[in-house]
C-alpha cells in the first residue's frame, strides 16, 4: 500500500514538471527568429508564394503563438507528437524506430560498466594502495578523460581494421538481413526467432561501441565502489564479522558490498538515463542509428516537432529511472522501506 501510493504521488508530481518542459521548449522556439517555413518547403519552392502560404496554413504557422501552444499541448496529451519537418513521418514513429538501437547499446554499455566496474572497484578498495589499485586508477582516469569520438576511431582502427578481431561499424554485418522486428533490439529479436547468425553478429557489433560508451560509466562506477568499500571496511560491523571467523571474501561480498549498493544505485540510475537518451559521438563513430544522432540532426535542421518530442522523451526517461532508483532504495535498504 505504502509503496504504490508513493509511486502514484511521484507520477502525479511528474505532470506539472512535463508541463513546464513544454512551456520552456515552446518559449525557446518562439525566441529564435528562424522561419520554420524554410525547413518545410524546399529552397526552390520558396519562390512560390502560393505554396509557402499553403504550407503555413497546413502547419498552423499563421496562427497566433498562444493558439499554437494550446494545439501543441492538447496534441501531446493525446499522444500525438506531430510530424517531423525533416522526415515527414510522425515523430512518435521516428522515436520508436531509433529508440531500440539506443536501448540495446545503452543496456550493453551499462552491463559492461557494472560487470567490470564493481569487481574492479571492490578489489581496488580492498587492496588499497596496491599495484592493482594504482593501475585501475590510471585506467579509469584515462577512460573518463578521453573523448569517445577519438577512442572510437582508435579501437576501430586497431580491432577492426588492423587486427580484424571485431566487426566494423553498424548494428549488423552489411551483407546480413536484420532479424524479424519484435522488440527492435536485434539481439533479443534474433534470439526470439532462433536466428543464431544474426544474434552473434548483433552481439559482436555491440562490443566495441558498448566498450567505448560504457568506459566513462565504468570509471565512475569503479571510483564510487572503491571509495565506498574503503569507507565501509573501517566500520565496526566489518570487524565483528571478521571476529566471527568469516572468510574475507564473505566479509567483503556479504557485508560491505551490500552497503555500497546504495550510492551505486544512485549513480547507475543517472548513468542509465544518460545512456538511454542517446550518445551522439559514439553513435556517429559507429554508424549506430540511435536517438542521439536523430536528435542532433533534428536540432541542426531546426526540426521543432522532433526536437520537442525527443526532449520530452528524454525527460520521461529521467523521471522513470529516478523513480525506479527511489523504489530500489527501499528494496536494498530496509530502513528506507520502514520509514514510509
Amino acid at each position: 500500500m505504502g509503496l504504490s501510493r508513493y509511486i502514484l504521488r511521484r507520477i502525479l508530481l511528474a505532470i506539472p514538471m512535463l508541463f513546464g518542459i513544454t512551456l520552456v521548449m515552446f518559449g525557446m522556439y518562439n525566441l529564435t527568429r528562424v522561419d520554420p517555413i524554410v525547413m518545410i518547403v524546399g529552397e526552390r519552392q520558396l519562390n512560390n508564394p502560393e505554396i509557402v502560404e499553403a504550407a503555413r496554413e497546413r502547419w498552423g504557422l499563421n496562427r497566433p503563438a498562444w493558439e499554437q501552444y494550446i494545439t501543441y499541448v492538447t496534441n501531446y496529451v493525446r499522444g500525438d507528437f506531430g510530424l517531423s519537418f525533416l522526415t515527414r513521418r510522425p515523430v512518435v514513429d521516428d522515436l520508436m524506430l531509433y529508440l531500440p538501437a539506443t536501448i540495446e547499446l545503452g543496456m550493453m554499455s551499462l552491463l559492461f560498466a557494472v560487470a567490470a566496474g564493481i569487481p574492479a572497484g571492490v578489489l581496488a578498495g580492498v587492496r588499497k594502495g596496491s599495484l592493482f589499485d594504482k593501475a585501475a586508477w590510471v585506467v579509469s582516469l584515462f577512460n573518463a578523460s578521453l573523448p569517445p569520438f577519438w577512442t572510437g576511431l582508435i579501437v576501430l582502427f586497431i580491432f577492426y581494421y588492423y587486427l580484424g578481431l571485431m566487426p566494423g561499424p553498424g548494428r549488423l554485418d552489411p551483407r546480413m538481413d536484420a532479424p524479424i522486428t519484435i522488440t527492435g533490439l536485434y539481439t533479443i529479436d534474433a534470439l526470439l526467432t532462433g536466428n543464431w547468425t544474426a544474434f552473434w553478429s548483433a552481439l559482436h557489433h555491440l562490443m566495441l561501441p558498448a566498450f567505448i560508451l560504457g568506459s566513462f560509466t565504468l570509471a565512475i562506477v569503479m571510483r564510487v565502489t572503491r571509495a565506498a568499500i574503503i569507507d565501509e571496511m573501517r566500520n565496526d560491523y566489518i570487524r565483528t564479522a571478521r571476529s566471527k571467523g568469516m572468510t574475507e571474501r564473505r566479509v567483503v561480498i556479504g557485508h560491505a558490498l551490500r552497503n555500497v549498493m546504495i550510492p551505486l544505485v544512485t549513480i547507475l540510475g543517472l548513468a542509465l538515463a544518460g545512456l538511454l537518451s542517446g550518445a551522439v559521438m559514439t553513435e556517429t563513430v559507429f554508424d549506430w542509428p540511435g536517438i542521439g544522432t536523430y536528435l542532433v540532426k533534428a536540432a541542426s535542421a531546426l526540426d521543432y516537432p522532433a526536437i520537442q518530442g525527443g526532449t520530452l522523451l528524454i525527460a520521461v526517461i529521467y523521471i522513470i529511472t529516478n523513480l525506479a532508483v527511489d523504489v530500489l532504495y527501499g528494496v536494498i535498504d530496509p530502513r528506507v522501506r520502514h520509514e514510509r
Partner: peptide, 15 residues
C-alpha cells in the same frame, strides 16, 4: 548503408 566517417568507410573498403 550509412557510414558517417570517410576514414571508416575506407577501412571497410580495404577489408
Amino acid at each position: 548503408i550509412q557510414v558517417n566517417d570517410s576514414t571508416t568507410a575506407l577501412q571497410q573498403l580495404e577489408r
